[in-house]
Amino acid sequence: MGSLRNVGVVGLFGYTILFFTFIYLPIVLIVAYSFNADPINMMNWSGFTFDWYRQIFGLKNTVSENALYIESTEQLLNALRNSLTVAAFTTTIATVLGTATALALYRFNFLGKKFYRVLLFAPMLMPDIVLGIALLIFFVGAGVSLGLKTIIAGQCSFLVSYVFIVVSARLAGMDRSLENASADLGADEWTTFRRIILPQAMPGVIGGALLAFIISMDDLVITYFISGVDTQTLPIFIFGMLRRGIKPEINAIATLMLLFSFAVASLGLYFRSRRG
């Protein structure tokens, strides 16, 4: 009986090790192969190199001309610039709108409050592709030329929900009697809002903004439909590269992107744990 139990415990432990291996082995692989010198068969280890990193930044061309895989460094940097521009705008807009909505639903009771809750959950539950083509039909029908502006507006339509949910969760955990305490001690509504509600909602707002930023940087499906032919964001650029065949620089780009998103995510989680 006892030994059977031990087998169960060991089994579950071993399973959990496998679980984490499944999650992280691919990531380790891609990082490792981004330093692999073999340009043809990436799974064949033929020495350590920084060449792929040098190439994506256009610093060096060690392989022969016809092995110049990347379209152009210019295009890559352009996609990165587009992604950052979009993310900066969407993060700002979605954070302001999402936070305002969360505060409104927290502070006030009004007719149609339930409707708003559904409205704000809907974009998250909507399959990406549905929202993507709906926005495409809408923008084309409205005669708006596709580009950065449509990407920003389109992404905000669902990012507002993410911010709203993160901030709402934070507000829901807040003790309502704190507002009463503040009023009791002589603070008017505005002072209570500024000194009690806002500081306490802040970790939620920052968390929501970071989430919006990461999702915006990563969004592929919706952006794919409403970006038009000339505007590429980073995920679309990589998707395009993949569709044309895999080239070793992708490993290096992927590694850099992983590094970047892990850094941002760690920062966010660290921030959250500090504010407790």
């Binding site: 009697s177 009463n180 305490a181």
Partner: peptide, 8 residues
């Protein structure tokens, strides 16, 4: 207040 309502 009942649960003190101290501003955390």
């Amino acid at each position: 207040f009942q649960n003190y309502a101290l501003f955390p």
